[in-house]
């Protein structure tokens, strides 16, 4: 199926991929991971990237999030041609435009929940008071105000992931990328986290691109894009 035929709804594209390819090299052996990816994702979309292991979904997510670079093609995300940015510019771009949610939360163990959320704001030039207000808002949104001075080891897995979500949204990014956000959670906590992501999409208009194996998680998205051996296979609109 041609990726151009994917209908992800109306709206200004926030992500535009043209002929994206990505290969890894093992000595002289080229291992292609993604080939000829053409894709537009409109602003406000909630997309689940699915596919078997090795299909290239995490690699595609990394490229969209600007933490990896393609070996071919161009990608424009949040109004920036990422190929044109050097490493420092790309870092600043990520801080301003992308929020990350990881499978294993990746909170800094020596910082409290509050400090973990504040971390990304240290780069924004905001004053201390403004940072505090933003962190308080983000923690309130994920319903963890009462745990703000707890360290990660004092939180449950679900709470840790909610802190990670607060960290992802505290800079008010346009795009949230999530790599198996419920992969380490039990069913109840997974449901809570997915509900929260759904709210971020519907109520706050955040564009979300999520890699998942979990059909239940994928069902929360509005579109599912399936990859197979490094190429886009099909796009499915989720009926709820």
């Amino acid at each position: 199926m041609n990726a151009n035929a994917f209908d992800l709804g109306e709206g200004e594209p926030i992500i535009t991929l043209r002929g994206i390819a990505k290969s890894y090299w093992r000595e002289t052996l080229e291992i292609p991971v993604l080939q000829g990816i053409d894709l537009e994702i409109p602003s406000g979309a909630f997309v689940a990237l699915m596919g078997p292991s090795g299909s290239g979904k995490t690699t595609l997510l990394n490229l969209v999030a600007g933490i990896d670079r393609p070996t071919g093609g161009t990608l424009e995300v949040c109004g920036h041609e990422l190929n044109d940015l050097d490493d420092d510019e790309l870092a600043a771009w990520r801080n301003a435009h992308v929020g990350f949610i990881f499978q294993n939360y990746n909170l800094v163990p020596v910082l409290t929940a509050f400090e973990n959320v504040e971390l990304a704001l240290l780069l924004t030039g905001l004053g201390r008071r403004a940072r505090r207000e933003r962190v308080a808002e983000a923690l309130d949104l994920v319903n963890l105000t009462d745990k703000q001075w707890n360290y990660p080891r004092q939180l449950s897995g679900g709470q840790e992931q909610r802190v990670a979500i607060a960290r992802a949204i505290v800079t008010d990014p346009d795009l949230l990328v999530a790599d198996e956000p419920t992969g380490a959670l039990d069913a109840k906590n997974a449901e809570e986290v997915l509900g929260l992501m759904s709210r971020l999409n519907t109520e706050m208009g955040k564009t979300i691109v999520m890699v998942t194996h979990d059909p239940k998680a994928a069902h929360q998205a509005r579109h599912q894009i399936h990859l197979e051996k490094g190429v886009l296979d099909r796009a499915v609109e989720v009926n709820r």
């Binding site: 999030a65 933490i67 490493d87 420092d88 870092a91 600043a92 990520r94 801080n95 301003a96 990350f100 990881f102 990746n106 800094v108 971390l119 990304a120 780069l123 960290r167 800079t171």
Partner: peptide, 16 residues
């Protein structure tokens, strides 16, 4: 290593 990767992912430049 993983923590450094997270710092960089959320916007810290390598030099920072």
């Amino acid at each position: 290593g993983p923590e450094i990767a997270v710092f960089r992912a959320i916007g810290f430049s390598a030099s920072r």
